[in-house]
């Protein structure tokens, strides 16, 4: 089954450009390493890599650094790096190409930041790697819960038990969560780990 609002991701491919910004989390690093095999000579001399290893071990960090990008940034989380990303996008000129690889959560947040400066999501190379954990917005309290892996899940803001729908909003960069037991709150279906 294909879900219309569900984003479709591709494989990172080097684009013509004057500079390149590559953003990855966890296993997304491997997508950048794969892109490096196809990249023309000198590609990384005008590239910046932003990487969030998370709980990944260090070998990806070393492998990415070995690509000798013009700049390498390693951070604890995307949230911590957002001001930096915003500044890069604000000051960048056309000719900068964007690549993002890793979790859906990362991809959606990078797309949002890029949209804010007028970059169309179709102009961003995106590749999904690693966890299928979802970023979900509770339709009741509007609170966003990161890294949801179970169906249903408990909203981290209002505590309702929510069913994760396959409806994805590009504007918010999140899936939708709707109350699963509104009729009878005592009915508590079992949580299953399905977005891994």
């Amino acid at each position: 089954m294909t879900i219309k609002s569900r984003p479709v991701y591709g494989t990172l491919t080097p684009q013509a450009g004057t500079s390149h910004l590559l953003i990855a989390d966890a296993e997304g690093a491997a997508a950048i390493l794969d892109l490096a095999k196809k990249a023309p000579a000198g590609f990384f001399a005008s590239a910046e890599i932003m990487y969030f290893p998370g709980s990944e071990d260090r070998h990806h960090v070393d492998a990415l650094k070995a690509l000798a990008p013009q700049k390498f940034y390693e951070g604890p989380s995307f949230a911590a790096a957002l001001p930096r990303l915003r500044q890069i996008l604000e000051e960048a000129h056309m000719g900068l190409r964007l690549y993002v690889a890793g979790t859906e959560v990362l991809i959606s947040q990078v797309e949002l930041a890029a949209n804010a400066v007028g970059v169309d999501h179709r102009a961003i190379q995106a590749e999904h790697r690693g966890s299928l954990a979802r970023r979900v917005q509770c339709v009741h309290c509007k609170g966003i819960t990161e890294n949801v892996t179970t169906q249903p899940y408990t909203c981290s803001h209002c505590g309702l038990l929510l069913l994760v729908r396959d409806h994805y909003s590009r504007r918010i960069g999140a899936f939708q969560g709707v109350c699963i037991n509104a009729e009878d709150p005592t009915e508590i279906p079992e949580k299953e780990e399905i977005f891994r």
């Binding site: 996008l89 604000e90 960048a92 000129h93 056309m94 000719g95 900068l96 400066v117 007028g118 970059v119």
Partner: peptide, 8 residues
Amino acid sequence: LAGQPLGT
């Protein structure tokens, strides 16, 4: 073209 801000 080279001088245009990203998002042009």
